[in-house]
């Protein structure tokens, strides 16, 4: 038989099998349909609209009808006076959040794991997860109560000690620390869950053997718990690096103000102000795409690295 015909027959056969398989799972596909439609409409259609990053978007002409301008909006952004500052702020805040956020989470996980008081452990878990569920608007309210120069608790304390009050939220010296530490306050408990899980999955026999060998509790932590956390730690760090350009839009959007723009303005807040407040839709979309692209590259690379070093990965 002619090999080409044989191949095409096999192909038709393969196609038929495939169709039959698909038909067999028709109910599952039907179940999947609404979700797929959602992603198509609300996630892929915007990607199509994102072409206005390369166009001079004119609402009257629509997305498709607006004239192309190439990379002009990208050039405008890179040559903008504030480009360097935005990138620096974004990276500084992001890196500080990783560096200062992970150690307390590990510490908390170890403490929760090691304590022999179950009640304390329970209540600390319940309470420390809670801030994760507060919105940044609410946390802003809490921060106002703590930090306001005229009414805040901390400044009341400073004044009682005869010190000058510090305008934490409006001083260029303190704004970034406030952003980072408020994130640490909000998320430490929640991030500890992952580490706690890793600790719980360590074989208890290891601890028992070590105890019999006369290892102190501290030595057990150092030689059993900490190494047991390494995989998760590498994974968490790498994935955070993947999203390093997300320095926390919602947080900074509610916290920042004119006096601290120079240290608080990040790419996302700039995009919001240009796009929504100054009606430069194409420019904002271009910067959004730029950020998305860098993020995509970083996260793919990070994921590769995570898989290589730990064998586990996000996807």
């Amino acid at each position: 038989m002619n090999p080409a015909i044989a191949k095409s027959l096999a192909g038709r056969d393969g196609l038929a099998t495939l169709l039959r398989r698909i038909w067999r799972y028709r109910l599952l596909y039907l179940m999947l349909l609404p979700g797929l439609l959602y992603f198509l409409i609300f996630r892929y259609w915007p990607l199509w609209n994102a072409q206005i990053a390369f166009k001079d978007f004119q609402p009257m002409l629509g997305v498709w009808g607006s004239p192309w301008v190439g990379l002009q909006h990208f050039q405008d952004f890179f040559s903008s006076y504030y480009f360097g500052q935005l990138l620096a702020n974004t990276l500084i805040i992001s890196v500080a959040k990783i560096a200062l956020g992970i150690p307390p989470a590990i510490l908390l996980a170890i403490a929760l794991h090691e304590t022999s008081r179950r009640f304390l452990s329970r209540i600390v878990q319940t309470m420390s997860y809670l801030p994760h569920f507060l919105s940044w608007v609410i946390v802003y309210g809490i921060l106002l109560a703590m930090l306001s120069p005229s009414e805040g608790l901390i400044n009341h304390g400073l004044r009682a000690l005869g010190l000058e009050p510090i305008p934490f939220l409006t001083s260029t010296a303190t704004f970034q620390p406030v952003v980072v530490l408020s994130e640490v306050w909000k998320e430490t408990g929640w991030s500890a869950i992952l580490f706690l899980a890793a600790l719980l999955s360590i074989n208890p026999a290891l601890y028992e053997a070590a105890a019999i060998d006369g290892a102190s509790r501290w030595q057990q932590v150092r030689h059993i718990s900490l190494p047991g956390l390494m995989d998760v730690l590498v994974l968490v760090v790498l994935l955070k690096i993947g999203s390093i350009l997300d320095a926390g839009f919602h947080q900074i959007f509610v916290l920042y103000s004119l006096p601290v723009y120079s240290v608080g303005d990040i790419i996302d807040t700039w995009v919001y102000r240009q796009g929504i407040q100054n009606f430069q839709f194409s420019l904002a979309t271009a910067v959004g795409l730029f950020k998305g692209l860098i993020g995509l590259v970083l996260i793919v690379v990070a994921n590769r690295l995570a898989r290589r070093f730990t064998g586990s990965s996000l996807y």
């Binding site: 001083s171 006096p259 120079s262």
Partner: peptide, 21 residues
């Protein structure tokens, strides 16, 4: 075209001067 940048530049600098930063 970059009105927002201009306004921000001036206001931000003046606030920093006025606040003693």
């Amino acid at each position: 075209s970059n009105q927002a940048d201009i306004e921000r530049y001036v206001s931000e600098n003046l606030v920093q001067f006025a606040l003693g930063q």
